[in-house]
Amino acid sequence: MSGAEAITIIGLIASVTTIIETSRDLYDAATSAQGLHDAFRAVSQNIPLVLNILRDCKTVQEQIDRDYAASTDAHHRHELEESSKAVKPVMSACAENAQQLKKILEKVVPGDTAHWLERYKKATQAVMPYKKRKVEYSMKEMLEKLQVLHTIEAEKRSAEVEAAIQHLSELPPSLPEDDSRYSHSGAGPMNVNAGGGIQKNYSQSGGSNNKMYNAENRNFGGD
């Protein structure tokens, strides 16, 4: 492990820490945060836990780097090198989650509470296109990634992290779930009756394609 590699990993941890601290400051500075979905509050409440784990990781990594520099045992140096390599992809993934949270908070938290949901929808579409993602998911994923490291480096936080992940998992969705059972990418009509009862009077205008259905039971497929 070269000195440059060690600096890169420590720098990555520091970068994630800075992003999370910025997110904390954004939420704390908001005058209307109380009008947001509970998921935003849950995210904010978990920020101190994330910061504590990141500080633990930085402390451990700094010690690993010192041990690596001082050791002349090739096997020990290899173990330290592998330990550092394992941290880098986890922190890179955490950096992505942290950036998502910060960008959403930047767009959603400031302003009046009456239109926060519309700002939130637009923010998630801009920050995370093509993904079903919510603030609680980003925080939950970050904790799950850090959990891999913290179970090795700080067992005392295990129960706290598990409780935080469980709480985030049980929150009502901060955005309405898209009904992905029904999608249509081709030509022609799509007839859907998502509830009970009779599906009546569907029509498609347009010459020979004009059709109307008034059906109590319609069956498709094989036997």
Score class of each variant (00 low, 15 high):
Gly188Val: 07
Asn209Ile: 00
Val108Asp: 02
Pro176Arg: 10
Phe40His: 04
Leu168Trp: 04
Leu117Val: 11
Ser138Ala: 14
Ala4Tyr: 07
Glu79Ile: 13
Glu170Ile: 05
Ser158Asp: 12
Met91Thr: 02
Ser180Glu: 10
Arg181Tyr: 08
His150Arg: 14
Leu146Cys: 00
Met142Asn: 03
Ser183Ala: 09
Asp67Met: 05
Arg24Met: 02
Glu177Tyr: 06
Ala86Lys: 12
Gly111Glu: 07
Glu155His: 02
Lys131Val: 11
Asn46Glu: 09
Asn209Tyr: 01
Glu5Tyr: 06
Leu36Ser: 04
Gly111Trp: 05
Gln61Val: 01
Ile198Thr: 15
Ile104Thr: 12
Met91Lys: 00
Asp28Gln: 10
Pro89Asn: 03
Met139Arg: 01
Leu80Phe: 00
Ile53Leu: 11
Pro110His: 01
Lys200Phe: 06
Lys121Cys: 07
Ser158Ile: 05
Glu177Ala: 15
Tyr137His: 15
Asp67Lys: 04
Asn219Thr: 15
Ala14Gly: 15
Cys57Ala: 15
Tyr213Ala: 14
Gln99Val: 07
Lys122Ile: 11
Thr59His: 07
Val87Lys: 08
Gly186Gln: 09
Val108Asn: 01
Gln100Tyr: 02
Pro176Cys: 09
Gln204Ser: 12
Ile19Asn: 09
Gly186Ser: 10
Ile53Asp: 05
Glu79Pro: 04
Tyr137Gln: 14
Ile19Leu: 05
His150Trp: 10
Leu146His: 00
Ala123His: 04
Tyr213Arg: 13
Lys132Phe: 09
Ser183Asn: 06
Glu170Phe: 05
Lys88Glu: 13
Ala29Glu: 05
Tyr130Gly: 04
Ile47His: 01
